[in-house]
């Protein structure tokens, strides 16, 4: 019984962390059709922002939940102004340019912090379920995942900004005809997406040691989750996080972490072959 509870917790944790990792990318892909291959580096930068602030004496929650998204949001804004804005509508070029950005950011961080591992410890201790030890921080990540998804959903569904953003996504011409500048909308969306990535990076920072190349660990997972989810930001992210989170975690429990990853990659290929537009391209089409 305890064992089952632990496994369920593990699976839920895997789903939540996938959703967290993917949320920023999903917003940018779903709203702007931009595939940001520097997404992993955004998370990595969020992690560094949090760690540096904690080292400087800041409260860890402020560092993770405020400083990390703020810093990465600003970096995202700069990148949007300098690079992305010139490439809208050119999906492949955007992928190439952001791949370049990913290398560039890795290089910058290496030059500043060196090619070493840094980290902070988790602010929450563990607790016992029967004879098993569970991580309290994992629970925090689950809550954070749920909160992030809920906020995105609410913003898209109920706010003016969300309405305009969804409108611009359907038809940029129409939105500009109604007096909204699609370029401004894209700028804001990209910045918010970056901030979300920074937030996720901050929250995940205490879990693993961070290196300048850590982004590579995140990007493939986020990438696969988002592409497999399809264009609908919330339903897509949730459904494919659930699918891949469960699959990876269960495979991992049965074998090794490597096979967990390989299973995810394989599942993604099969899925894309069967549903070329992702899960929400086929099901849940009217969702956000």
């Amino acid at each position: 019984m305890d064992f089952v509870a632990v496994i369920i917790l593990e699976v839920l944790y895997a789903i939540a962390s996938l959703a967290l990792i993917s949320a920023g990318l999903a917003v940018v892909f779903g709203m702007m059709r931009v595939i940001n291959l520097a997404h992993g580096e955004f998370l990595m930068l969020g992690g560094y922002a949090a760690i540096v602030s904690v080292r400087a004496g800041l409260n860890i929650y402020v560092a993770m939940l405020v400083v990390a998204p703020l810093v990465v949001g600003i970096i995202g804004l700069i990148i949007e102004r300098c690079v992305i804005q010139f490439l809208y509508g050119r999906m492949l070029d955007t992928m190439l340019a952001t791949w370049g950005l990913s290398l560039l950011l890795t290089g910058v961080v290496t030059m500043i912090f060196g090619n070493t591992t840094t980290g902070i410890s988790t602010p929450i201790g563990g607790f016992a379920i029967g004879s098993y030890q569970a991580s309290g921080y994992n629970i925090f990540i689950m809550l954070a995942g749920i909160a992030v998804i809920a906020v995105i959903f609410t913003v898209l569904k109920t706010t003016r900004l969300g309405l305009i953003a969804r409108g611009a996504m359907q038809s940029a011409d129409m939105a500009s005809g109604l007096g909204h500048n699609p370029k401004r909308i894209y700028m804001v969306t990209f910045t918010l997406g970056a901030a979300l990535s920074g937030l996720a990076g901050g929250i995940l920072a205490p879990l693993t040691g961070l290196t300048p190349t850590s982004g590579g660990l995140y990007v493939s997972k986020a990438f696969i989750t988002v592409i497999s989810g399809g264009a609908a930001v919330v339903t897509g992210t949730v459904s494919s996080s659930a699918l891949f989170g469960t699959l990876t975690q269960l495979t991992m429990l049965l074998s090794t972490p490597v096979w967990g990853d390989v299973a995810m990659l394989f599942a993604a290929i099969v899925l894309l072959r069967l549903l070329p537009r992702g899960i929400t391209g086929r099901f849940f089409r009217r969702q956000v």
């Binding site: 690079v83 010139f86 490439l87 070029d93 190439l96 340019a97 791949w99 370049g100 950005l101 990913s102 290398l103 560039l104 950011l105 890795t106 290089g107 910058v108 290496t110 030059m111």
Partner: peptide, 21 residues
């Protein structure tokens, strides 16, 4: 040892996509 390799390669990729595709 000063300028990082990935930094230069990444920069080159971005610049070529933007300016000399």
């Amino acid at each position: 040892g000063v300028i990082n390799n990935a930094f230069v390669l990444g920069g080159i990729l971005v610049l070529f996509v933007l300016l000399l595709p």
